[in-house]
Nucleic acid binder design. Structure first.
Lengths: 222, 222
DNA sequence: TAGATTGTTAATCGATTAACAATC
DNA sequence: TAGATTGTTAATCGATTAACAATC
């Protein structure tokens, strides 16, 4: 019924150290990626100024973001690329395996499963779930197993599932989110236009492709 | 090479009236959507407090956002749902047809074309483009025409194309963005992890699904 | 050492929230 | 009229940027 913002993460942000803004975490991923590509180019050292320039942000912001987690740089020299990358990957838990399921193997869901590219290293797509698993299987061009949503509890009990990608119709989203929370799933990547009411420990991130286009079209003077 | 933030819109924000923050536009779409669903429920009037409650935001913020564009409410009564919806749709230009093309009909591109759901009312998907249109056609389950990227100029000249959805490999993104700008395309919905250097008049919105998952996984304590 | 660049504190900027007179 | 709710100004909050002593 009610609609939802598209980017912010809901839930309790008091995670780990203390009150790290979601915007900082987002940039941390960008730093980590850039450092990886710098490593490929055999660049061993980089300053906050250069890091910022390449990402279109302020040097002070780069240093302040990193300062949330410790001191990684060397005054007068900058940051060692490989070292900083490892540190950031550790903070982002990119080393540990993240187990993912996808619920709702309809148009978008099957597209995402077939795409696969949004699952990079460190992510494992375990299973798909759909109200009609037979029809769903025919939509997917991948070997992934697809179960009935009725079997959600049966499948997940005793299993570690970290993130659920939710691509069900909007009016089914809340009920499934509640079940996921009960099963210990810790985060939802929500592609439905529904605001989800979930426990505080749970994290929800909204992605609304229609909204992105709608917003862009505002800037289009026709 | 360098990576990019995932949500902000680049380019000159001095659009129309004066300096409307991108965050306000984003919320405007949410208001418009909610009002639409209220209209279906035959709710004719709503206060900023109730509007805010349903969207999880502050009543003052709702009023302040709307104040950017004029005075739409009635003191003591609130806002007339149908009227406000019309006004917001006008501001968002939801009435005028927005013409869209998609470039890069690979895994993600074909998934999005097949999905279709991210194109709501008011959007027309004209054509797809790919370096290998024959292979691309076999990937897409829709009647949309797919041309060679070589024919981009030939096809677009004299045509009004408002938004291009960019789902090409990262290293091809900048060159195509430059060509699109030259052809008068006004906005890019960029699904590649490349920061695009485009003219100030052009708007770019980044959507990075891998980044969304990566960010979420930070909050997953495993 | 001289030059460069960090980590961090202080200043600035912008966005969100509160308060309230105006008004239906 | 009394009650409710707007539009808008002022206060608060948080995030970004500037500045600079510490330090390699």
């Amino acid at each position: 019924m009610s609609e939802s913002p598209s980017s912010p993460t809901s839930g309790d942000p008091e995670n780990g150290s203390r009150k790290i803004p979601a915007a900082v975490i987002k940039r941390l991923s960008l730093y980590a990626r850039l450092l990886q590509s710098l490593e490929f180019q055999n660049i061993t050292r980089i300053s906050s100024a250069e890091l910022g320039r390449r990402l279109g942000m302020n040097a002070a912001q780069v240093r302040k973001d990193l300062a949330c987690f410790g001191q990684f740089g060397v005054p007068g020299l900058g940051y060692y690329v490989a070292d900083l990358r490892v540190q950031l990957r550790k903070i982002l838990r990119s080393d540990s395996e993240v187990r993912v399921i996808l619920i709702g193997v309809g148009n978008l869901g099957s597209a995402l499963l077939s795409y696969g590219g949004f699952l990079k290293q460190g992510f494992t797509m375990l299973w798909g779930f759909d109200v009609d698993p037979v029809a769903a299987r025919s939509r997917v061009r991948s070997a992934i197993e697809i179960f009935s949503i009725d079997d959600l509890e049966k499948r997940l009990i005793g299993q570690q599932v970290d993130i659920a990608v939710l691509t069900v119709p909007a009016d089914a989203a809340q009920a499934i989110a509640t079940r996921l929370a009960a099963l210990g799933v810790q985060a939802i990547l929500n592609f439905t236009p529904s605001r989800l009411d979930v426990p505080k420990v749970m994290q929800v991130r909204y992605v609304d492709l229609a909204l992105e286009l709608e917003n862009l079209s505002y800037y289009v003077q026709s």
